Amino acid sequence: MRESIRTALARVRNPEYTGENRCVPCTIVNVSLAAAGSAIIGSVSRKGGAAAFAGSLAAIGLRGYLVPGTPALTKRYLPAPILERFDAHPLEESDEDAEALTTETIEEYERQQERAVNPERFLLDVGAVELRENDLGFTDDLADRIDGRLRTLPDDPLEPALVAELYGLEPAAVTVADRPYPAVRIGRRIHKWPSTAALRADLATHRALEGLTDRWREVPQAQRIELLEVLRSFRERCPDCGGPITLTEDTVDSCCQTYAVHALNCDGCEQPLLEFDPDDTDRGASGGFQP
């Protein structure tokens, strides 16, 4: 009996708009409409109103929406501040599962903030970057180290053992996530890269910095990940095919909003290396560090 119920629910459920793909603004709109409609029915029959609301919530839970065309309605009528607050921005690592803010996570965040380094000063001090014509670039030493590490990586580096190196974890703590792009699950969070080339760049740069200085491991883990992302923009050639890297501009439609996107893409294999918001002037996560 229970198995037949599960089978029936699975047939009704729409994975395109539920689970990790659920749109929060659309859900809010649908629940609000369900509440309003149920209130009208409830004015005639309390039992009928309660049943209508329960049925509407079940439909929203299984299908993701109650009213067809909800994304278009939400985009048109829901105020922008609400959309910006709840919508999953495609440029952020925001498809991660919600993680409760416990005392432990807050304390860990505070510890990492205390140990955080000034990115530009740190990279200059350890000989990772140098000033070149009013801009920063890799030192020859680090560039050679990165190229050497790239040659040791597999073509597809999406392996728990390799990714675990970036986060200082055991391979068992990392699970490959089912995504059309490289992604892993660590605990309750999903961590992603825009392409295999981007992941290869991060792995090679991490290993190169480890070999360059013992101070790399002293940088808080979260800041190391942010630094690796920024350092992708220092590359002049694709870590996969060796093609030139160019800056492109585009717009991306999420469920409820449209965003301007700047990206560094390979002209050869067309893999994106880095995507960023053109209005975000602090990509370095600290004090105006601009690559």
Rank of each mutant, 00 (worst) to 15 (best):
I41G: 08
P194Q: 01
A260I: 00
Q223N: 05
A80E: 15
G64K: 00
D97G: 14
I5V: 12
V117A: 08
G37Y: 07
R121T: 11
N118R: 08
V174L: 04
I225A: 07
R179Y: 09
V163G: 00
P90V: 04
A143Q: 15
G42C: 10
L124F: 07
A51C: 02
T74M: 11
C266P: 01
G19W: 04
D214N: 03
C255N: 01
G288H: 11
I225P: 00
F289Q: 08
L66V: 11
S43I: 07
R200L: 02
T205Y: 04
D144H: 13
G49H: 14
V126N: 00
P68C: 03
T27G: 06
S43G: 14
G211I: 07
C266E: 00
D267A: 14
L101D: 14
T27R: 03
V24R: 13
V176D: 10
G268W: 02
Y77I: 14
A222S: 07
H191P: 00
A285N: 15
Y77L: 14
Y259L: 06
G19S: 01
A58F: 10
D87H: 00
P182W: 06
E92N: 08
G55A: 15
H262R: 15
D125T: 07
V126L: 03
D141H: 13
A36T: 11
Y109H: 12
D87P: 00
C238Q: 01
R215N: 03
L158F: 04
A204S: 08
F122N: 03
W193V: 00
R200H: 04
A58H: 04
I106Y: 12
L150Y: 12
E229N: 09
G48I: 01
Q223D: 09
L227N: 06
A208C: 11
S4T: 11
D156T: 07
E275S: 06
D141S: 12
V29A: 15
Q221H: 09
N134Y: 13
L131A: 13
N134M: 08
T246W: 01
A222E: 02
